[in-house]
């Protein structure tokens, strides 16, 4: 009897459920209508939306900034060859950055849930403490995991520090796990069964599995079995050296250099190189190639780059802002 009721409800709910891409459109539309810049995913491998320069660099300094973007996030060690219905090597985050956070940020977030078809009067929502910290990025914040009927659907963080720099103003970060939310809305037990797109005319649909399963399998094989450890180390050394070289050039700028000279310094490129290092570290880690003693050292190397970039970026911004004022 109970089962019958459940099935009936869920069917009724899922018929109108958003497809994966509609979910993305709706959330983007929602935040776009609330003053956010819509950005595209960053085109360098990252482990989380936080690592995109649209978050990592924009949260630094005093300039207000609001942006939303989807970010495919690669975590090589989380790959499961496409065999686990709940785990992915690459998942998609919808990242919303509100700097400074508006006082009604929680309400805005709840409205965004209504926008994707979640009627809160029919659900149980809780904000449970969950603080975030990334030693490699020298960043931390406090906040919540948002639980909907027992499912964690969002990470909500008030960023306090980034790249070792105390933030002022702080930033509100809302990170939606799109696969989880889509699976919830569509009531499917496997991520691979999520309907990615449905042709309104023909009713033909394409699943997440059809789009991404091969990628999950092949990257799991590469990340865990095939990646050439020696070359990964070489890549890491090369990217690190180049990033350092750029940062050294920044530091070598004479005191009081003018805004034009300062704004030409490729700090943004240095950050890309730092991201490369971070991803290579993740690959080496998944490959089981980093020993205990090395591990701490490599994290420190990446952190040094991230902190260096954050410093350089802040300094650059302040010179440029000064000249504009």
């Amino acid at each position: 009897m109970k089962t019958a009721v459940t099935t009936a409800t869920s069917n009724a709910a899922t018929e109108h459920a958003l497809t994966f891409q509609e979910l993305l459109f709706t959330l983007q539309g929602f935040w776009s209508a609330r003053g956010c810049i819509l950005q595209q995913p960053y085109d360098v491998e990252v482990g989380a939306g936080t690592m995109s320069p649209e978050t990592f660099l924009r949260v630094l300094g005093p300039k207000p900034y609001s942006v939303a973007y989807a970010q495919p996030s690669r975590r090589p060690a989380d790959g499961r060859y496409g065999e686990n219905p709940n785990r992915l090597f690459k998942h998609t985050q919808l990242q919303v950055i509100l700097k400074p956070p508006p006082p009604d940020i929680q309400n805005l977030y709840l409205e965004s849930l209504a926008a994707i078809g979640i009627d809160l009067r029919q659900h149980d929502i809780k904000f449970e403490e969950d603080n975030w910290e990334s030693p490699t990025l020298g960043a931390w914040g406090v906040g919540w995991q948002v639980m909907l009927d027992g499912l964690e659907i969002t990470q909500f963080t008030y960023f306090q520090q980034c790249g070792g720099i105390d933030l002022d103003p702080i930033t509100g970060e809302i990170t939606y796990g799109l696969e989880r939310i889509a699976a919830f809305l569509q009531d499917v037990d496997s991520i691979y069964d999520i309907v990615w797109m449905r042709d309104a005319k023909t009713g033909r649909s394409v699943t997440y599995g059809e789009v991404r399963l091969a990628e999950e399998l092949q990257f799991s094989v590469y990340n865990f079995e095939k990646a050439d450890i020696g070359k990964l180390w070489q890549h890491l050394d090369l990217y690190e050296a180049e990033c350092k070289a750029l940062l050294d050039q920044t530091r070598a700028l004479p005191e009081g250099s003018d805004a034009v000279t300062c704004s030409r310094v490729p700090v943004l490129a240095a950050f890309d190189l730092c991201l490369k290092c971070s991803h290579l570290f993740n690959l080496l880690d998944a490959r089981g190639a980093i020993s205990v003693t090395e591990r701490v050292g490599v994290i420190a190397r990446v952190r040094a780059l991230a902190v260096g970039v954050a410093k350089a970026y802040t300094a650059q911004q302040s010179v440029v802002a000064h000249s504009e004022a």
Binding site: K2, V5, T6, T9, S10, A13, R121, Q122, H123, D124, I125, K126, L148, D149, G150, L151, F184, D187, D189
Partner: peptide
């Protein structure tokens, strides 16, 4: 739960919790 729902709501929330579990 941190809410009060009717039978339909309870069915939805139960279903969600069961799904996660």
């Amino acid at each position: 739960l941190n809410t009060e729902v009717d039978a339909a709501g309870a069915a939805i929330i139960r279903h969600g919790n069961e799904r996660v579990l």
